[in-house]
């Protein structure tokens, strides 16, 4: 395998879309799980454990382990392995929940 993490495919590729991870601009395929788009961009660490600070990424890939959760378009705790990527999707590692903020 050379270059990126995305395999060549004989199927027609989905449309490319732009999205952000921690405000960094990335490109993925429309409709693929966010976790796949992140992996294809070489992003392994999706968040840090809130008590130990250790990095965490995809583990089970089927929504069971919740390790790949992130904030997606302002909603916390979204499992990126189950959530399709769209044009402009904003993904962030840090839970920015603030009760006082409107």
């Amino acid at each position: 395998m050379s270059g990126g993490y995305r395999f060549p495919s004989d199927e027609p590729l989905a449309r490319q879309v732009r999205f952000t991870f921690n405000e960094r601009e990335l490109v993925g395929l429309e409709g693929e799980p966010i976790a796949a788009a992140l992996l294809a961009n070489g992003v392994r660490t999706i968040r840090h454990d809130d008590s130990t600070g250790e990095p965490r990424g995809v583990y089970c890939g089927i929504g069971h382990c919740f390790e790949c959760r992130a904030q997606v378009d302002g909603v916390n705790g979204v499992r990126t392995c189950l959530t399709p990527l769209r044009e402009g999707t904003r993904v962030a590692s840090v839970a920015q929940w603030d009760v006082a903020k409107k």
Partner: peptide, 9 residues
């Protein structure tokens, strides 16, 4: 009572 809690899991 806490509208912002709508976004909490």
């Amino acid at each position: 009572l806490f509208p912002k809690m709508a976004g909490m899991r």
